[in-house]
């Protein structure tokens, strides 16, 4: 079985999914990532799905689970690079990816994590600071 590599860049874990994952690979990634978050103490996870030409309900559920797990482990997950055709298909499929933050690309995803982290350090009640988040 193939494994998806997890890279550590500063305070962020970057997962770039480059292959058509089997369900088992997806579950493995979920487990690997939880371990790496704890081992590294990173506060941000970026999952880059630019290369994925489909996201079905299984992968969608895996992304949601990763987001929830990392939240429990005090890390922010951002899914980046979803292709338009994939987004349109997910809407039609009825999958809303609730609870997942998204960004257009890795760079914007890093900004998002930095902003979320800064908020935590310097909390203030101002205009909605999460304007860039994608989830309601």
């Amino acid at each position: 079985m193939e494994r998806v590599p997890i890279l550590k860049i500063g305070d962020i874990l970057l997962v770039s999914i480059q292959l058509d994952m089997s369900d088992q690979t997806a579950v493995q990634l979920q487990e690997d990532l939880a371990e790496r978050i704890v081992a590294t103490g990173c506060h941000g996870v970026i999952i880059d799905i630019t290369a994925l030409d489909i996201v079905d309900s299984f992968v969608g559920r895996m992304l949601s689970t990763i987001a929830s797990i990392s939240k429990v482990l005090d890390a922010e997950t951002v899914v980046v690079g979803m292709r338009p055709a994939v987004a349109i298909t997910l809407v039609e499929l009825g999958l809303s990816l609730n609870g997942i933050r998204t960004a257009l690309n890795v760079e914007r995803g890093m900004e998002l994590i930095a902003a979320a982290h800064a908020d935590e350090l310097d909390y203030q009640l101002d205009d909605d600071p999460d304007a860039e988040t994608a989830t309601p």
């Binding site: 899914v79 979803m82 349109i88 809407v91 998204t102 960004a103 914007r108 994608a134 309601p136």
Partner: peptide, 13 residues
């Protein structure tokens, strides 16, 4: 509405 939701999934508002 679908366009808006799809854009959100991609990380845009």
């Amino acid at each position: 509405l679908k366009t808006v939701v799809a854009a959100r999934l991609m990380g845009a508002d």
